[in-house]
């Protein structure tokens, strides 16, 4: 039934077989809330650095920085941190192309780094990101923001800011589409046979 609703709302964008769990406006609202939470928890985000994990985490980090600037006029440094070289599953697949790392000019030393990723699943990406961060500097604290937390953690890692907690089966796939890279905003849950 929800599939039918989605297709009537977005007839050209989301195929009816893919259940969109978050639509564009839901994603906007979630990011707005996370931006407020970051401001609240870091007391004005004065020494915060947002680091997105490519590709979509980096896009989300930029959007969060825009919101924080809008709400309180704070210009938060934003960058991207590629974690490919730190993955623990490199040997399971052919060598992957690298994403783009771009650290803000001030670096991360002594700052509160908020890692931003689109989906939090096993926690292995975040572990790799913590290792990568270790090699580029020494932040005062590291926090984690994710648009979707889909559960099934394999490591003792949790997010500080979550857009939506999404109960999933392990066999399902969560796909995040963002306008900057995919032409539209949506979070879609794919059953195993649709992958």
């Amino acid at each position: 039934m929800s599939a039918a609703q989605n297709s009537s709302r977005n007839p050209h964008e989301v195929p009816p077989s893919q259940r969109a769990v978050l639509e564009g406006p839901d994603i906007q609202r979630a990011l707005t809330r996370i931006a407020h939470e970051i401001l609240e928890r870091t007391k004005g985000a004065t020494d915060v650095v947002l680091l997105g994990i490519p590709t979509r985490g980096a896009t989300l980090a930029v959007r969060l920085a825009e919101r924080i600037a809008e709400f309180e006029g704070v210009k938060v440094p934003v960058g991207a941190l590629d974690i490919t070289m730190y993955r623990d599953d490199l040997r399971l697949r052919p060598a992957r192309p690298l994403g783009h790392t771009e650290l803000p000019p001030g670096g991360v030393d002594g700052r509160v780094v908020v890692l931003v990723d689109d989906v939090l699943f096993s926690g292995r990406t975040v572990r790799a990101a913590l290792d990568a961060l270790n090699d580029v500097g020494r932040p005062r604290a590291v926090q984690l923001a994710t648009l979707v937390d889909r559960g099934h953690r394999e490591l003792p890692i949790r997010a500080d800011y979550v857009g939506k907690n999404l109960p999933t089966a392990k066999s399902e796939t969560v796909k995040v589409y963002l306008a900057e890279t995919d032409g539209r905003d949506a979070v879609v849950l794919l059953k195993e046979e649709q992958r």
Partner: peptide, 23 residues
């Protein structure tokens, strides 16, 4: 081109204080 693009990303490693990757 993949080799050149990969090298482009890796060139940042030479500018860091820790010039090492665990890969």
């Amino acid at each position: 081109l993949l080799i050149l693009d990969t090298a482009e990303e890796l060139s940042q490693v030479s500018d860091r204080s820790i010039k090492k990757l665990p890969t």
